[in-house]
């Protein structure tokens, strides 16, 4: 019954040689895709950023006009500032809203845990834009919220909620909330409840337990959540478009306008590069300050 095949020493070498190329074969198609359709376009962007308009509309020639960077940045400095301010505020708000939510799901939900997790992600299953428009209509001038406030005489016909910075930040917060909640939940869920009990046992009250034990242990989730919220929020322009007014435009609106309204491709490219590098530097500084290497 027992089974023995021809076991020979030279098997060792052939299997090692075969193994050496396997990872590269596995990587090749996906890496090809990312290099061609992500990396190459980004490099092209650098090329485009220093071009100037040619003889025909929509045609550009390389003139190495590095001043494009400064000109387009200076022209959009307000929108840049706003982008980072709005996304910072939205990230902070999302953290404040998500943390108790994630905490409740991780520690207080019992057998409902999985169901509640699904509910957190559920809003994702309707279109991002549809949700944003829903908010616009709910909070809008003909919407139910202002209607109720007016009936209660808490608002008059001049009161507006939408078309404001507040509405844009609120929209950003809402739309990226699951990006914050899920990583927070994941890191909280990994905490052994006995550690928290031990802290209580060692005379820490609930608040102390939270700030000395729970919060530090959940820091990988805080890091991942804030990044996953901040990055897309900084580049977003849908919320500013639907919930804002001309004075609340963000950098994404400007890039979009450069492309589709003024056909200023070099300007759009320059702004994209500045935005991308600023975010990358902020992210790296942030990771270095707080981070672990668990992100990738």
């Amino acid at each position: 019954m027992a089974y023995v095949a021809n076991a020979v020493g030279h098997n060792k070498k052939t299997s090692a040689r075969r193994g050496r190329w396997t990872p590269y074969l596995l990587l090749m198609p996906g890496m090809f895709w990312l290099i061609t359709f992500f990396l190459l376009p980004i490099i092209k962007l650098f090329d485009k950023a220093t071009q100037s308009p040619g003889d025909n509309i929509g045609q550009f020639v390389q003139t190495w006009s590095f001043s494009n960077y400064w000109d387009s940045f200076w022209g959009a400095k307000a929108q840049f500032g706003r982008s980072f301010l709005f996304s910072f505020l939205a990230t902070l708000l999302a953290l404040l809203i998500s943390y108790p939510l994630a905490y409740a799901i991780a520690f207080k939900s019992g057998k409902w845990k999985n169901t509640l997790l699904v509910l957190v992600v559920a809003p994702f299953y309707t279109s991002f834009i549809l949700r944003t428009i829903a908010w616009e209509q709910i909070l809008g001038n003909q919407g139910p919220v202002l209607g109720i406030l007016r009936t209660l005489h808490l608002a008059n016909s001049n009161t507006h909620i939408t078309a404001s910075s507040f509405a844009v930040v609120a929209g950003l917060t809402y739309n990226f909330l699951p990006f914050m909640t899920l990583p927070l939940y994941a890191s909280l869920e990994r905490i052994d409840p006995r550690v928290l009990e031990a802290s209580g046992d060692l005379y820490a009250n609930s608040w102390k337990t939270f700030f000395r034990v729970t919060f530090p242990l959940s820091s990988p989730g805080v890091l991942a959540g804030t990044l996953l919220t901040f990055i897309p929020a900084a580049g977003d322009y849908i919320n500013a478009d639907i919930l804002g007014n001309p004075g609340t435009k963000m950098i994404g609106n400007v890039i979009d306008a450069h492309f589709f309204q003024t056909t200023d491709y070099p300007g759009a490219a320059a702004l994209s590069i500045i935005l991308m590098l600023t975010i990358l530097i902020l992210v790296l500084l942030y990771i270095r300050r707080f981070g672990t290497e668990e992100l990738v």
Binding site: A2, V4, A7, V8, G9, H10, K12, S15
Partner: peptide
């Protein structure tokens, strides 16, 4: 070795 069979470098699925 198992008996006189050298299994030093045999793959796991090729040994009894």
């Amino acid at each position: 070795l198992i008996g006189d069979q050298d299994i030093t470098y045999a793959r796991p699925y090729r040994r009894p």
